[in-house]
Design a binder for these strands. Sequence first.
DNA 1: CAGAATCCCATTCGATACTG
DNA 2: CAGTATCGAATGGGATTCTG
Lengths: 235, 235
Amino acid sequence: MKLQKETSISLDPSQSLHGKWYGDACGTAFALELVGERWSLLIVRELMLGGRRFSDLRRVLPGISAKVLTERLDGLEKAGVLVKRQLGSPAPAQVYELTEWGYLAEPAIQELGRWAARSPLHDPQLPLSPVSLMLSMRTMLDRDAAKTFDAVIGFEVAGETFVAELTNGELPIRRGDPAAGQVIFRAPAAPVIAGLLYADLPMKDLEANAGLLVEGDRALAQRFLDLFELPPKSG
Amino acid sequence: MKLQKETSISLDPSQSLHGKWYGDACGTAFALELVGERWSLLIVRELMLGGRRFSDLRRVLPGISAKVLTERLDGLEKAGVLVKRQLGSPAPAQVYELTEWGYLAEPAIQELGRWAARSPLHDPQLPLSPVSLMLSMRTMLDRDAAKTFDAVIGFEVAGETFVAELTNGELPIRRGDPAAGQVIFRAPAAPVIAGLLYADLPMKDLEANAGLLVEGDRALAQRFLDLFELPPKSG
DNA sequence: CAGAATCCCATTCGATACTG
DNA sequence: CAGTATCGAATGGGATTCTG
């Protein structure tokens, strides 16, 4: 009798996914139904560059409790935003991964970030996760200036590694070995790189006192860094 | 014992605007700090086409209580998203209006809506406010197809009136007398127009049984309607 | 009618402790 | 490591009432 509907999602639109329904066909309202709870969108953000494990998420979301993380992962899975995958290969482990549709949330996340960054109250000096940093680069890239610029840049930030491949004004980023880059930035924490990108702090200073390490073509590195800037503050 | 926090809002960025802080420099996290609470973003949405009064907001946000609306308006004012203005001209009244920066949230709201509309779970048949409808048109407009098409369209939806002026693939919308349009759509409720735009229901049917009224150049009307479509469902 | 103030219950949060 | 279980405290928000 109660086959899948119970265990999966009720498609009855009068039923909320989490009990609080705006009763509104507006896509924005529905989006809030899906990811409007505290922490949800930040979890999606952290998965945006590839699947992560439970403990990874706890680590990069300072302050989230195991209980809430469990609840949110459940909700997001029911909403079709992510899937939980069992990896049994080397050691048994489970990974949470965005669905195809989940990945499509990136523009929304970016627009929210771009907007908030223009608030006079925004403080860019706070801690930042490696993924946030990498995504912010996609948001803040000056695409026009980048059109005539190809480069492969490696990153190692707080132990996580990425490769960014600038081509045609696009900046795909994947997890991978940074040694593949013409330039490699290594930093013990994301805000160091953020200072470089957005506060225009000199490489040398950060190398001297913030643990930054820049390997490879330094001129290319600087040209790359100049492609990024925060949107102007409003008000 | 703990007096200071509750009596006022601190602008110290290490202090939350509403007591729950993500402690994250990521713009998205800060956006959620500002508008992440239940109802907040929908209030912003409803103000997107111009200031509204307390009771207007209560009417178009079915289910919000006076208490919560008051709290959210307070919070949004402190966050710099909106301002409360006293109009004393004809009758004393107060209007909530977005700040310049508040208006800049439209792309974020639209991207969220566009994303959610692609969910297989989204039901476009629910109630819809007039403002949601008008904003959705800006989201779902096929800008390429619209580039070669100029038109002025009037709307009267559930008693609210708007003028949309299609030019250069842009669709500015303001409140105003719909009689200014070459075509005027009148409908008792927003979903009627939504059916026209997104479900491709025939004008004639809706005129016959949903209270739709189309005045003016009907061929132009149909051409205009053809410019809109929902994004493809994902998954 | 606009909105502040109060009451009150259900929900939610986050910390800690515990389990396979 | 990947979660459950539990519990006290805080918050959410609906209903109602009060003020101008």
